[in-house]
Structures are given as structure tokens and as C-alpha cells.
Design a protein around this nucleic acid. Structure first.
Lengths: 140, 140
DNA sequence: CTGACTGCAAACGTTTTGCACGGTA
DNA sequence: TACCGTGCAAAACGTTTGCAGTCAG
């Protein structure tokens, strides 16, 4: 997906230069905080306002273009919406990595919620730990 | 567990009246935001300071007495530390319910992270949807 | 008795808001 | 052209801090 204009229009949002910049930056980096998105985009578009970033991130989450990833003890990060997956969150460097969701977990979780009469709309699996890269760092 | 004094002392924290009140309120309600904890405890202990609640919640999370539960689009809630479990988060009323973790998911997630050379320290599974109670409300 | 903890008030950083201007469809 | 979206500055909000007094161990 690189056609942000179509994506935005299909979500009832006008395809402004700012919104496309935000999406481009998020796709490039994977998972970003609002502050990080602003810092990144303002480099190439200095008149960008932080308020605009806030307004648009919230709006794009509501419209389903973006997904919020809440993280323990930190500010939420945001990513493009894509098929369900698991997040590996490194507690050392803060990086978030995506891993495909296993079918078995889906089945188990669906069974569990069905038996609870809970109308499941969204799964969120975050695994916290130390990524391979940071383990190497620690060793030295 | 009701012996908060022992729990606190074992965690290198003094067993103050305020801390015990916070823990009691959290245990009674299950999952609470900082604001909610303050609102609840200040009723019976009017001199309580919000700053004290902040300081202590953060401290007790660091010491492992409490666990932070980050939730999409909302402020984090806090719960007593207990054996691993799944959270069912109702997007209507905001209530969080605990469900026991299935062994199969544990196995799957461990296998996944091992193969990634990711040193797993903590799992977090949140399922968002509508609880049974709110589904009944909607129908009417 | 002493260091840890509390409450207060002020400081701080983050997020939201209202409004005049500018740009998309 | 009509609205939606942007940038700015101010306001509102949540969280943190420093300090003097108090309390648990």
C-alpha cells in the first residue's frame, strides 16, 4: 500500500499533503509515538503544527486507517492498519516488532470469548522482553 | 491476600495507611485508573493528596505489587499482581474482566519468541469487545 | 530516632480548543 | 465555490517536583 490518497478518500478524509506525510513516516518507521511522528515530518515540512498531528492521528484511528498500540509505562505508538499480528515490545530500546498471528491462538481466544458471551471486536497481544539486538549489547 | 502490610514490607515499602487504602480499593474494584483510585479513597480519607496516589502507584508498579494495564484510547488501569491472565475490555462501559490464561497460548507464544531469540519477560493479552451486560443494554 | 512518606502548591509537559486563513474536491 | 483542514496561540488537563512537616520501623 502506497496509495495513501485513495486510502484516505475511501475513509472519508481529504488527501492533504500533511496526512500523506504522516502516513508515509509511519509506514517507514513501523510504530511511532505522536511526538516522534511530528519530529520526523517537521524536518521536511517545517510549518507543520503539532496540533495538526494530534488531530489527524486521532481522526485516522477513528476511521480505522491507523491503529493505536498502547504500551506499558510509555506513550502509545501508532501503526498502519494491517492484518492481525502480535507485537514484540523491547523493554530496553523501545522498539516494536510485528509477528504474524498464529491460527491456534485465534481459535483459542474465540472459543474463550464465545463461552463468555463476549462480542469480540479486536485482539491485542503484546509480548514484552529484550530483543536479540539488545541482548547482544548487554553481553558486552 | 488481605495482608497488605506484609506484602508492602516484603517489597521494601513502608506499610502506611495511605498505601493500604489504595491496595484495598484496587482489590475491591479489580481494575482502576489513578483518578478513580483517588476519588474512591479520598471519600474516606479526605486529606489524601493526588500526588501521593501518583507517587505510590508508580512505586508499587516498580516494586511489582501492582501491574499496569494499558488500554487503547484511555488512561491505564492498575490491578494487583496475580497469576497471568487475559483481559476482556468492554468498549462500551470500560469494565475490565479477568479470564484465566490457557496453557496452549502460553506454549505457542513461548515457541514463537524462542525462535525469535526474544527474551520474553511478560505477556499481555487484551481482548476488546462488548460485554454481556452491555449487549443486553443495546438490545433495548 | 531517622529515613521514608505525606500533603501542599507550584511547575511542567502534553493534549485540546477556537478561530482566521488556505487548500481539496 | 463550499467545506474541510491547517497553523497558531491560548487554555485546559494530567503529571511531576520540591519542600516542610509527620510517621513507621
Amino acid at each position: 500500500m502506497t496509495d495513501y490518497a485513495t486510502l484516505l478518500n475511501e475513509s472519508d478524509l481529504k488527501a492533504t499533503f500533511q496526512r500523506m506525510q504522516l502516513l508515509e513516516s509511519i509506514e517507514e518507521h513501523g510504530h511511532m509515538s505522536i511526538e516522534a511522528i511530528y519530529d520526523e515530518v517537521v524536518k521536511t515540512h517545517p510549518s507543520l503544527s503539532l496540533a495538526t498531528v494530534y488531530k489527524n492521528i486521532i481522526l485516522m484511528v477513528e476511521k480505522g486507517v491507523l491503529v493505536e498500540v498502547p504500551i506499558e509505562g510509555k506513550k502509545s505508538k501508532y501503526e498502519l492498519r494491517k492484518e492481525d499480528h502480535i507485537h514484540l515490545v523491547c523493554t530496553e530500546c523501545g522498539e516494536v516488532e510485528d509477528k504474524p498471528r498464529m491460527e491456534e491462538t485465534d481459535t483459542i481466544l474465540n472459543t474463550l470469548t464465545n463461552s463468555e458471551h463476549f462480542k469480540l471486536t479486536k485482539q491485542q497481544i503484546n509480548l514484552y522482553g529484550v530483543c536479540e539486538h539488545c541482548q547482544v549489547q548487554e553481553a558486552s
